[in-house]
Simulated assay, not measured.
Amino acid sequence: MMPHSIQIVTPDLCDAHPDVAVLDPMFANFGGLDAFYGPIRTIKCFEDNSLVKQAVTEPGNGAVLVVDAGGSYRCAMLGDMLAEQAVANGWAGVVMYGCVRDVDILANLPLGVQALGSHPRRSNKHGEGQRDEPVVFAGVTLKPGQWLYADNNGIILAERELPPS
């Protein structure tokens, strides 16, 4: 399954589904898709993007990769090469609680990317971190299988896929 291409508007989804969780407004849009959504898969890692690199080589099937990078501003956890692999493998997007790099290239890829900021330094690669476990940041707990919806207005989280509003 390829990434979802239906236009979403998070304010409309919030109005139609008041039970959704809203992530704290700390993310900026860096990807070529302003709006994206899908079921989430999670990674928790700190200044080591080994698991991110592994995940984007696997079939995304329209999912959103949610990475708890500890909110670090000391290195980038996603760049052009990994983002291009995410596109090739059918990921809808990446939400990075940390930084990304190669932002001019990311902006031209058909991938949703939201992150705290950009940083030119790459991360370490020691194979550390956890996958497919709940992560907590931006005022919410994000669990694999929940649905994430993101656009320029913000990021929301639902327990199930929401019908288009």
Rank of each mutant, 00 (worst) to 15 (best):
V113K: 07
P134L: 10
G117H: 03
R101L: 00
V22F: 02
I105V: 15
S50T: 15
R101G: 00
L148E: 11
D34Q: 15
G71I: 07
N108Q: 15
G90R: 02
N49R: 14
P120I: 13
R74Y: 12
G70Y: 10
Q54I: 11
Y37K: 03
E84F: 00
M81T: 13
W147K: 06
F46D: 03
T141S: 12
A150T: 05
V66D: 02
N29W: 01
V67S: 07
Q130E: 06
D15L: 15
S72Q: 09
G32D: 10
N89W: 04
L116A: 07
K53A: 11
M96L: 14
A150D: 11
G79Q: 02
R131S: 12
M81Y: 07
D80S: 10
A83D: 04
Q130M: 07
P59W: 03
C14R: 14
E58T: 14
A150P: 11
L13V: 10
G139R: 03
G70D: 13
L33G: 00
D80A: 12
R101K: 14
A86H: 01
N124E: 14
C99M: 12
E47H: 01
K53H: 13
G98N: 05
C45T: 15
Y37M: 11
F36Y: 15
N61R: 14
A86L: 05
Q130K: 02
S72I: 05
S50W: 02
L148Y: 07
A35Y: 10
K125N: 09
L142N: 01
P39I: 00
W91Y: 09
E58Q: 15
A115C: 09
A21P: 04
K143Q: 08
Q114I: 09
F137S: 04
P18H: 06
L78Y: 01
I40T: 15
F46T: 08
V56S: 06
E47L: 06
I43Q: 00
G71T: 08
G93Q: 08
L13H: 08
F36W: 13
H119V: 11
N108A: 12
M96S: 05
K53E: 11
L142T: 02
V140T: 12
A16E: 14
M26C: 11
L65Q: 05
S118L: 05
A16W: 05
V56Y: 03
K53R: 14
N89I: 02
